[in-house]
Design a protein around this nucleic acid. Structure first.
Length: 505
RNA sequence: GCCCUCAUCGUCUAGUGGACCAGGACACAGCCCUUUCAAGGCUAAAACACGAGUUCGAAUCUCGUUGAGGGCACCA
């Protein structure tokens, strides 16, 4: 048994991280942390055609935002200092971090793959071939025509006298041909594959780059990965990897093939279901705490009768267990994410919430250019904290405090079961009351207003509703008196005066 | 077509042969609280895909059926 757990997340640099990929990463990270082990990322950029510049940066930024610390890779502090795409890419191309051997970009490790591919050839576990893609296509078509199973085998080679100096590929031999290759998967259990169904896959491409099969095995071994946690679309090729470990004589890691994330229609989650990139969630005002919590519970539950739903990252680390990852695909529920986001927002200290809210409310057009406006913004936080589901929701709840409102229509200023005259009188009394209120705070204001309602023989709701409309221009707002208090006496009186004028006509 | 995987309320799940006429959470509905909106509390409705076995007893084990997902590249 290995002494220390090490897991990795190995994305291809083809764009922003998909939320499903992030979930896999979270499972890998939690596995490592739960066992006090290490976690790193490795860029699988062996397909030159699909490479997207800037991916290293996007991926590193994702983990930075999530608050997931990498052991193999730059830490949060150094990430913050980086400026250009090259800085980020360079950080991953670096030698090693915390004892995990880099580089963490496969294109920087080419000699390793070439060396081990040659090793396999020398030891009879692989061979050279040089059929062109067109030739292979023709062979495949012919086989399928005969309704036979297409599986490349050594004896199918068109040419056997291959000059190692000329372009060619290296393919693995499947040994033994008629055996069975089994694996014990942490989430799928025991799975068996007939070797007859495993083809002589290309390990090293003609361009000198490895395929995934070779690269992941070589890297995972060299980087001492103990738990290979990846999407279950890899399950079918797992026997190839097992065979390779066996050929090399390397100890097998544990495997955990985690199921896909589905959209609400039961299909694989994609753009048409809504947001899929982590950054979209971030930009829509989701907290990283909520995203981690939600994703972790998508396909995992603490089990053993534990019915906890809301977790901090530390709680997840403590309770996580890779054996409890569910084996069936899970549907991504936006409404549950919304709920969890609200929960985590409510858990934030108000000052912290204000901090996170700032970019969002500014983006919505609210400006706090004076210290006084900033103070008002901070005071408004407790009023909205339990009313927002995403950081984006805040602006719409408090905009009227910071920007002018349209004077409400007469209709909105006449109370339930009240006539115009009574409403007018009520607003005048309110204005007088607010003018004289010694301390412009929520509690004394509410008390005074309740007394006023009584004196006018009005129900509190009747009075408050028209005052709300007059002062905020809205019928739905955060608690009235707290809001008025934050807004300040001057603004409130002005707006009341305008409303009074409307009713006086 | 072949191979692999999966199958409990609408959704995420608990459940590993008896404690389950199946528990929790989200969403939905109603009620309470209440100045609106939230938050909170309470209540309701809601599931073991189907069919055979094994067993005194099955959501749990076996087989089959159906459905869904994934793989079958010099992509990862």
């Amino acid at each position: 048994m290995t002494s220390s757990v090490c897991t990795r997340f190995a994305p291809s640099p083809t764009g922003d991280l998909h939320i499903g990929g992030v979930r896999t990463a979270i499972f890998a990270w939690l596995t490592a942390r739960h066992h006090g082990g290490k976690f790193f990322i490795r860029l699988e950029d062996t397909d030159q055609e699909r490479y997207m510049p800037g991916s290293a940066r996007r991926i590193l930024e994702t983990f930075d935002w999530l608050g997931i610390q990498l052991d193999g890779g730059p830490d949060h502090a150094s990430l913050r200092q980086m400026k250009t795409d090259e800085d980020y890419a360079g950080a991953l191309a670096d030698g090693s971090y915390k004892g995990i051997s880099g580089p963490f970009v496969q294109s920087q490790r080419l000699p390793l793959y070439q060396q081990w591919a040659e090793w396999l050839v020398e030891h009879g576990c692989a061979y050279r071939a040089n059929e062109t893609p067109e030739e292979l296509e023709r062979m495949r078509a012919a086989v399928i025509e005969r309704k036979e199973v297409w599986n490349f085998r050594e004896e199918m080679r068109l040419r056997t006298d291959i000059d190692p100096a000329q372009p060619h590929v290296i393919r693995m031999r499947v040994i033994p041909r008629d055996g069975i290759t089994q694996l014990h998967d942490l989430v799928k259990g025991d799975v068996a594959f007939e070797n007859a169904n495993t083809d002589d896959a290309v390990l090293l491409k003609a361009d000198g780059y490895p395929t995934y099969h070779l690269a992941n095995v070589v890297d995972d071994h060299l980087q001492e990965v103990t738990h290979v946690i990846r999407g279950d679309d890899w399950l079918s090729s797992a026997p190839k990897h097992i065979l390779l470990y066996r050929y090399f004589g390397w100890e097998l890691p544990q495997f955990a093939h985690v199921p896909n994330v589905l959209g609400e229609d039961g299909r694989k989650l994609s753009k048409r279901h809504g947001a899929t990139s982590v950054f979209e969630f971030r930009d829509q005002g989701y907290l990283h705490e909520a995203v981690i919590n939600f994703l972790a519970m998508l396909g995992w539950a603490p089990g053993e009768g534990d019915e906890q739903n809301v977790f901090t990252a530390d709680e997840l680390i403590e309770k996580f267990s890779e054996e409890h990852i569910g084996s069936s695909p899970a549907v991504f529920s936006y409404s549950k994410l919304d709920w969890l986001n609200g929960v985590h927002i409510r858990r934030l200290p108000p000052a912290e919430l204000a901090e996170r809210l700032l970019p969002f409310v500014e983006q919505a057009g609210l400006k706090f250019d004076t210290p006084e406006a900033q103070a008002r913004f901070r005071q408004a936080i407790p009023l909205i904290q339990e009313r927002i589901k995403t950081l984006r929701d805040a602006a719409g709840l408090i905009d009227f405090i910071f920007t002018d409102i349209e004077t409400p229509a007469k209709q909105a200023l006449i109370g339930q079961k009240m006539d115009q005259a009574a409403s007018l009188a009520a607003l005048r009394e309110t204005k007088a009351l607010l003018e004289q209120l010694p301390v412009f705070d929520e509690a004394p204001m509410e008390q005074a207003m309740r007394t006023l309602a009584e004196r006018l023989h009005l129900k509190a709701g009747q009075l408050f509703t028209i005052v709300r409309n007059a002062v905020t221009g809205k019928s739905v707002t955060p608690p009235l008196f707290g809001t008025i208090s934050v807004m300040g006496r001057e603004t409130a009186l002005q707006r009341l005066e305008r409303a009074i004028r409307v009713l006086s006509e």
